[in-house]
Design a protein around this nucleic acid. Sequence first.
DNA 1: CACAATACATTGATTTACAATATATTATAT
DNA 2: ATATAATATATTGTAAATCAATGTATTGTG
Lengths: 120, 120
Amino acid sequence: MDIQNTQSQMRKGVLEFCILSIIQQGEVYPSDIVEKMKLANLHILEGTLYPLLTRLKNAGLLNYRWVESISGPPRKYFVMTEEGKAAFEVLLKTWNEMTSAVNQLTQVTNPISTSEATAS
Amino acid sequence: MDIQNTQSQMRKGVLEFCILSIIQQGEVYPSDIVEKMKLANLHILEGTLYPLLTRLKNAGLLNYRWVESISGPPRKYFVMTEEGKAAFEVLLKTWNEMTSAVNQLTQVTNPISTSEATAS
DNA sequence: CACAATACATTGATTTACAATATATTATAT
DNA sequence: ATATAATATATTGTAAATCAATGTATTGTG
């Protein structure tokens, strides 16, 4: 167990969120996603991406259409479903709440003021 | 596969980071950690926490000392090693870089208002 | 001495990212 | 035509980690 492992875990946690976000911004095929993720320093491999896209498609969050390519086999271009857009909004809220909570937990200069810290 | 799964993944990714942060802020025993995580809406179970603390201890990031309790068996109070403090600084940097990247990727136009994050 | 409360710890199942490899399509060279 | 290279989708086997359930141990109380 080393730090790199923990860093890797951090990135894993947001993979689906980021990929949904990329697809929401416009139709893309898998290689586009790999490229955009790499630009954000969030590397993802094809062996990870294809099963993930299949899971999201089966869950009803994504759809795809075949598009002919001028230089190779046809590509699967992915788009968000309405359900996918709604799911992304929920995840965006979760992301903002979680980063806020983690920032409070990890970057406090004062002890956590738990005014509501009564028993469970 | 549903949204709750993805939300859960997000939280998993920052578990070790948050736990190191809690221990860095002061000696705690496992139940303290569970409680503090719950207050941050980042729930962790004992079956997850004990192996995780053992991993961090074996990796040289943590140490512990036994402390007698007035109402039950003795407790393991955990403290950071120097190596652990250094590792936490690295993870803090990773966290800030990653959140910045994800926020750019997801095109968050409004900064999170709850923290005074002016870092990096 | 039995029982409850507290605390540390392990086991088995499930999930999932990754590395390696497989399958399929198109264009180019010979 | 056929072989080869490039591009693209897809699967398999392995390893790591969380979780639910359960186990072990210590202390105090009736």
